[in-house]
Computed example of a mutant assay.
Amino acid sequence: MARAATAAATRSPSLLRAALLLLLLAASCRRAAGAPVVTELRCQCLQTLQGIHFKNIQSVKVTPPGPHCGQTEVIVTLKNGQAACLNPEAPMVKKIIDKMLNKGSTN
């Protein structure tokens, strides 16, 4: 009988650790449920263009700095389906973004 009690006592800490680990995992999952999901954990634009002709652009996506990348990224989808990264600081790119924003607000 003493052996059974000793065996249970030695297993108990590992069971306690396992239960504590499960509680911590459950708590962290709840906390992360409202957090945005980042699909890419790095910058998407390694090289940027200074501009592109407005007529070739189908859509513009502006991604602000965040945990995935420390810089603003401007990614355009061209009418031929290709994607291109633009330098967000370039004057021509700022004009393109303004045009796209104004185009979306007038429709």
Rank of each mutant, 00 (worst) to 15 (best):
S59N: 14
A5R: 12
P36N: 05
Q71G: 04
A5W: 10
E73T: 03
G66D: 10
K61P: 02
A83S: 12
P36H: 01
L20A: 14
G66S: 10
Q47K: 11
L20V: 12
V38T: 00
P13K: 13
P91H: 11
P91F: 00
R17W: 13
V93F: 00
V37I: 11
P65S: 03
L49T: 02
H53L: 06
L16Q: 15
N56I: 01
S14M: 13
P13W: 14
L24K: 09
I57F: 04
E40A: 12
G66R: 03
G70N: 10
I96K: 01
N107I: 02
C43E: 01
C43K: 03
A4K: 14
L46S: 08
K79W: 02
C29S: 10
C43I: 01
H68S: 15
T10Y: 09
A84M: 13
C45K: 04
K103G: 03
S105F: 00
L86H: 07
M100T: 08
I75R: 12
S59H: 06
T63I: 14
A90R: 05
G70F: 12
A7I: 15
E73R: 06
V60L: 14
K95V: 10
A35F: 05
E73N: 08
Q71P: 01
A26K: 06
T6N: 12
G66T: 01
N87V: 06
M100C: 10
I75W: 00
L24V: 12
Q44S: 11
K55D: 11
A90D: 09
C29D: 08
T106P: 00
A7Y: 14
I96S: 01
L101M: 07
S12G: 15
E73V: 04
L22F: 14
T39D: 03
V60P: 02
N102A: 13
P13I: 12
Q82C: 07
S28E: 10
E40H: 12
K99P: 02
R31P: 00
N102H: 07
R3M: 14
C45R: 01
S14G: 13
C43T: 04
V93K: 02
A32C: 08
N80Q: 09
P67H: 06
R30P: 00
I97A: 02
H53I: 03
P91N: 08
V74M: 01
I57M: 00
C43H: 02
T6P: 01
S59P: 04
A2C: 05
L101T: 09
E73G: 04
N56W: 07
D98M: 01
R17I: 12
V62I: 13
C45G: 00
G104W: 02
Q50D: 13
S12Y: 15
R11I: 08
A83G: 07
N102Y: 02
Q82P: 04
M100N: 06
K95S: 11
A19Y: 09
Q82T: 14
N107Q: 06
V76L: 07
P65V: 05
I97S: 00
F54D: 10
L41N: 10
I96C: 00
N107T: 04
R42I: 01
P64H: 06
K103H: 11
V62P: 03
A35V: 04
T48V: 13
K103S: 09
P13L: 14
A2P: 03
N102T: 06
K99L: 09
H53Y: 03
A4H: 12
